[in-house]
Simulated assay, not measured.
Amino acid sequence: MNDVSKNSGTPITSETLKSLGRYDFPDPQVIDPEGVGIVAMGGDLAPETLISAYAQGLFPWFNEGEPIAWWCPEPRCVIIPSDYQPSKSLRRQAKRERWQLTLNQAFDEVIHACSLPRSNGLPEGEHTWIHEEMIDAYTELQAHGFAHSVEVWNSEGQLIGGLYGLKIGNIYFGESMFHRASNASKLAFWGLMHLCQQSGVALVDCQLPNAHLMSLGAITMPRAQFLAQLDTLISGRSTLWRPNSHQPLATAMLNTSKPWQANR
């Protein structure tokens, strides 16, 4: 992916990011004026294609064995990290537990955990829309420095929750989260909110609204408004997130203003 793949923190124009890959994605406002959400079909999941798509407000969402579908929903579900407020019960749990958060220490484990069925009626062994093609694509993005995971570990060193997504400039595109212990994913999300604020990430894209996201403080934004500010966000400069860029974080520290400590 040439020098863009290094995600070096050097400002990159939105046009550079949009022009990556070999596909011309349509303007969501033109191709989908009624706001159905799906704006294109086909293509591939190469790193260049994905970065170009996200830079234009699109993301892939399709079942295994189906053509790749590219979405840009109306409205868009987002959260502003500086507006996030954890519940009192979550604050108490963070103080009580002897858990730790890490950044980019177990991306493969997190994305595979996110792919497993939950309480959604899927048969045992059936995966979610995060199937092997998607896992391979985002794992490659992680190797290029664009995809990132936040992990939660219990006192025995077991992975009990986490989330993953993409960071481009000053926006984080959230993809999925999971938990194996009560509220572990919420603690990962709280850790992400802190990390975004400390790094200069101004907006987190949650894609589609649901009750869980709204309970965390997400809001809906008109698609046109989201797309209008996207160029500025993706071209912005923010602190790099590398596998060893930040120290492990005790959940009790989430109650402080700037808990993530950078490795020097």
Rank of each mutant, 00 (worst) to 15 (best):
L90D: 01
G161E: 11
Q197K: 14
N244W: 09
V4D: 04
S82Q: 13
P86H: 06
E126P: 02
L116T: 03
L208W: 13
K18D: 05
E97P: 00
I160A: 10
W153Y: 15
K88R: 14
G174H: 15
P47L: 09
D3F: 12
G162R: 14
L213W: 10
S182V: 08
A188K: 06
Y54W: 08
Q197N: 15
I51V: 15
L101Y: 00
G162H: 12
I130D: 01
F25G: 02
L159M: 11
T49L: 01
L195A: 13
S87N: 09
L254R: 04
L17K: 09
F62S: 03
T128A: 09
N63K: 12
Y172I: 10
I111L: 00
V39W: 06
L192E: 08
L208N: 07
H131Y: 12
S176Y: 07
Q229V: 11
P47K: 09
R96T: 11
E15N: 13
S257V: 09
S8R: 07
E15K: 13
Y54P: 06
G9F: 11
P47Q: 07
D3Y: 11
N263V: 14
A228C: 05
E140G: 02
K95H: 10
Y54I: 03
V4S: 05
L17S: 04
G200P: 07
F173A: 15
I80E: 13
P67C: 05
K186Y: 06
T10K: 13
N255Q: 07
N244A: 12
D205Y: 03
I68S: 08
E132G: 00
M253A: 12
R264N: 13
V204H: 05
P117T: 00
A147M: 10
V36G: 13
V150P: 09
G43E: 04
E34K: 13
C114Y: 08
G42N: 06
I171C: 06
Q247N: 08
R91G: 07
D136G: 01
V39N: 03
I80N: 10
E132Y: 03
Q229G: 08
E126C: 09
P248W: 01
P248A: 04
L122T: 02
K186S: 14
K186A: 08
I234H: 09
I79Q: 06
L50A: 05
G236E: 03
